[in-house]
Nucleic acid binder design. Structure first.
Lengths: 108, 108
DNA sequence: TATAAATGCAATTAATCGGTTGCGCAAGTT
DNA sequence: AACTTGCGCAACCGATTAATTGCATTTATA
């Protein structure tokens, strides 16, 4: 099963799970309490997140704590970087435009 | 149809389309030449990208040029930011660890 | 040792996805 | 005027998705 970080974060529930466990490692049961779905549904999401290494697990007795693993998220950031440059440039251009408009305010 | 930027960039073809038109605005036909699929398939992807405002269109006669719109991509960057902070911290910690190890190299 | 709790796995299902094919329409071309 | 080109739209189809339900397994507790 080819799992891909982009596909993993496409689902809003999975994004919420990541946000939760980024703050604190949690068990599937504890996670499920934050959602309107069943524990099994949450576990399936966790499985997908684990498959693309966005989460790690750590067993404590019969409980399994899932941790967020930021490493793989870099892939998204790396893909995003060139685009980010584009909107920053666009922002700069808008900035310059506004500066110019201000300067010419009394001209026309 | 509820479209969401995260879902839009989940598909590899759509990510490739964005990369292409970020460099230069293109028509659906021109885009389709870069892929192994039909023009209609590409058009469907474009439609999805347009629905979440990742692309703008500009008609020239019977041709439609699709432009990349970086604005909406910020949503992804914004969501990513806190996580990015985490892996940077982790990197810093690793960095400190390495520093400490170096310093203690002769101790144990 | 019997029972309860925490979890994973498998089967099922409705919905969505990505793709193809066929069609219609508007804009150029002959 | 007839034809070609570029495009969007609708219908259809197989694959995938997200969710539920039921069951098995391991670990803790009474």
């Amino acid at each position: 099963m080819r799992r891909d970080v982009f596909q993993a974060i496409a689902d809003p529930t999975r994004r919420a799970i990541l946000t939760l466990i980024a703050l604190q490692a949690m068990t599937p049961n504890a996670l499920a309490e934050h959602f309107d779905t069943s524990r099994q549904a949450v576990s399936k999401h966790i499985k997908i997140l684990a498959e693309c290494q966005l989460v790690d697990q750590q067993q404590h007795g019969r409980e399994i704590y899932y941790h967020f693993n930021p490493e793989k998220m870099k892939e998204v950031a790396d893909w995003l970087a060139p685009f980010q440059k584009m909107w920053e440039e666009r922002f700069d251009r808008l900035d310059n435009l506004l500066e110019n408009l201000k300067a010419q305010q009394n001209v026309r």
